[in-house]
Each structure stands twice: as structure tokens, then as C-alpha cells.
Design a protein around this nucleic acid. Sequence first.
RNA 1: GGAGGGGUGGCCGAGCGGUUAAAGGCACCAGACUGUAAAUCUGGCGGCGUCAGCCUACGCAGGUUCGAAUCCUGCCCCCUCCA
Length: 418
Amino acid sequence: MARFRSEFLRILDERGFIYQCTDPEGLDELFLRERVTAYVGYDCTADSLHVGHLLTIMMLRWLQRTGHRPVALVGGGTTKVGDPSGKDETRRLLSEEEIERNKRGILESLSRFLDFSEGGALLVDNATWLDELRYIPFLREYGRHLTVNRMLGFESVRQRLEREQPLTFLEFNYMVMQAYDFLELARRHGCRLQMGGSDQWGNIVCGIELAHKKDRIRLFGLTCPLLTTASGAKMGKTVKGAVWLDPQKLSPFEYWQFWRNTEDADVGRFLRLFTELPLAEIARLERLEGAEINEAKKVLAFEATRLAHGEAAARRAAEAARALFEGGGGDVAAVPVLEVSRSELVRGIPVVELFTRAGLTRSNGEARRLIRGGGARLDGLRIGDERLLLRPEHFDGRSEIQLSAGRKRHARVRVVEG
RNA sequence: GGAGGGGUGGCCGAGCGGUUAAAGGCACCAGACUGUAAAUCUGGCGGCGUCAGCCUACGCAGGUUCGAAUCCUGCCCCCUCCA
């Protein structure tokens, strides 16, 4: 497969990152010729990124590893407008402070994967230029280069119109804003390539066309496939919601577990996309069959966790999993802990409440149902009574007990004096 | 501006005065089977509650009624057709 000659594109191609590319040959040449600056845009609506963002993060990472310059753009400007695509309930507008906090969170998530130190990756906020825009001058200068005819042809727009779903002028302008972002990055930072999910294709192309008409510069676009699991579900959900990259929001142990529970059919693909193992090694792992494929899943979990949370955390997660799932007392240090005071324990703590406090269930009612359904365990023994109170005798001299919701989700409860 | 249709739980979508915490599907959780997989089958799936109950919910605000998601009034939003 001599499709690409440049290292970056070859890697992306071999690993399955490429869905569409505006001009593969031209881009390949560009990568052979110079140090390329490329960007990916991230929404600013949450304070952390999640696995749904991981594909593009990995692309930026490979970009940096192969000697080029990644730019992460956060949508501080566009977030102020509020994304209207979420149908009813006009979305709550975020305050400046919230946006600021979210930006910091996003940077923190990204910092695990990219080197933002001097001369490395760049973080930019489109508020920097979008805030300054004035309507009439903008329309006169840029609006004349964008035809509605052209924009109506884009898949995202066409689909809406065909299904007779409303498409507001505001949404329509998102494409324009993003097109302008690309141009602005090209001017400010010499950015030549925008990458994103396949749903971003129209927006990316729009930016390329704008830049060509306005500044006579040639930009490139590349999208990655929309990721679903082999059984067709969207990736990256757990009871707790999204699979966050921020360890505060989802512990490394739970992150490890997420990857460990990958479906058989996805293992090879995920290893290529979400780890940096050599392809030969992945091919070997992929060939494992039956129960042996679990080895491959552990490698996937370890490597993915290592990237997001560091090697030490990945080791602890792996060890805790060994202790929990394969018997033989390993170290369960990575399993999330809930602390309770001795005085509270002496009074007796409703076990349903503990499940909720430990984050294993979302409400006491859910914990009750879990117990009724036979999925709740205390130190491995099924809890039969939903009214059970946790008391000092359950600890039997130890400082910790273990709660489990189903086979896979565990938490420790530790007594502290007081 | 005019006429009609509509806003139901995370999503889709029934219900159109009581027996409706609201059919059905998807998603999700648990149990069984396994390999911490998939498929399948079973159960669950608003909150609080030591279980007797209480509270909140069908766009928003009022009203009619013993009783409202269901009827009435006003408001907000969406869709279709006409101008």
C-alpha cells in the first residue's frame, strides 16, 4: 500500500483514521515538503473531553510525533452563541467564566496527549477573532465569496432540508464561522490542514473554498470516520454518562474498564486507532481467538489508559482489575474509594445510600432496584436486604469493604476516624 | 397577516376526563449463559422512603371538575398550506 509517501499520512491511512481527504496527492506532497501546521476544532460546552474526541486527538498526536505542528482550536467564540442544533429548549448560554473554565479543562485533557510547550502544539480560541467581527464589513468582505447555492449542496444542510427539519439562519452561519476560522488560522499560523470527524466535512470544505477565493491559498481537509462499535452503538457511554478523559470525572480504573469491555469485533480496529503499538504487534493480537482475545483487550486497556492517564495509573488499574476479576489478592488501590466516618458508621449507614454516594448508582431507588435484582454485593456476597445498614461489624477489623454493582463495577468503602 | 396541525419520560412514539408514573420501541442497568465479548432469554428502568406511603412529571401560567397529559383561557415554541 504505497498510497502515501509521507510518514504522517501513511500512518493515518494504515491505522484507519482516514475517511475523506480533499486532495490526497497534494496533501501528501505538502507533508513531504514542509513542517505542516494542522488543526482540529473542539466545542467549549463541557469542562473535559471524552472518548468521542479521541480519534481527532490521536490524529493530532501522530501529527506531532511525525514532526509537524498541531493546533487545537477551542470554540470560545462559537460557544457564546450557543449551538442551536440540540432542538427544543434553547440551550442555556454559558457565561464567560464557564467558558473560561471549560477551556482550561479541555487544555488539561489535551495536554496528556500533546506537548504544548514552547514551539510545540498550540491552543487557540476563536473568540480572539470572532468577537471582533462586525456584521456589515464581514458580509462585504467574506459573504460575497460564499454562495448559498453552494452551501445548500452540503450534506449536512441538504439532509435537514430534505427531511423538512428546520435549519435556522444561525445554524447556517456556523458553517460560515468555521470556514472563517480556518482562513484565520491560515493567516495567523500558516495552518494548512483542518481535520475533524466526518460530520465536519462540509464545514471544512467551505473553509477551503473561502480561503481560496479570498486569499488565493490552498488548504486541505481530512476527516476521520464516525466511530461506532461493531454492534452499531455510538461509542463512549457508561452509567455515568460520557467516558471522560479527565480523571476527576472518570477514574483511570473505570477508564481502563471501559476499554477492557470492548467487543471482540472491535479489538483490532481500536488497537490501531487508540494505541501506538506497532501494526505487526496489533496484527498478532488481533489473531487471537476465543477467550484468548481477552489478552488483546487487556493490552488495549493498558495502552489506552497509559496515553490518557500515564503509565503508573494504567498499571494500578490493570492490577486492580486482576485482583477483582482474576482472584488472587492484587492491589486494589486503583478502585475508587468512598470514605465514611466511624461515628457515622456506628449509627449505621443505609447501604443503598452508600451505593449512590460511591457513584455506583444514580439514586437510592436505583440502588434498591439493584439489590432487588440481585446485582448488589458487599465483599462479594449478594445483598438480599435493601434496608441493610452498614455497621462496624461488616468491617470485621479491616479498614475497608468492597461494594459491587453487577460483576464489573466496584467501589471500596473505607472507615476514617472521626 | 390568514387557516390548519402539533409540543408526552434520555430518544422515538401511543394515550385524548378517572383503573395512567403514562402502551410500544430504542438506549441504559441487573440476572442467567459465557470469556469482564457478542447473540439470546428474564427482570428492571422519575425522586424520597426500614415499604405504609409521600412528592414531582405530559411546553408555560391560570381555570373548570370529586378527579386533567386528556376539557377551557392566555402565553411561548415548532410544522404545513395560503398571502
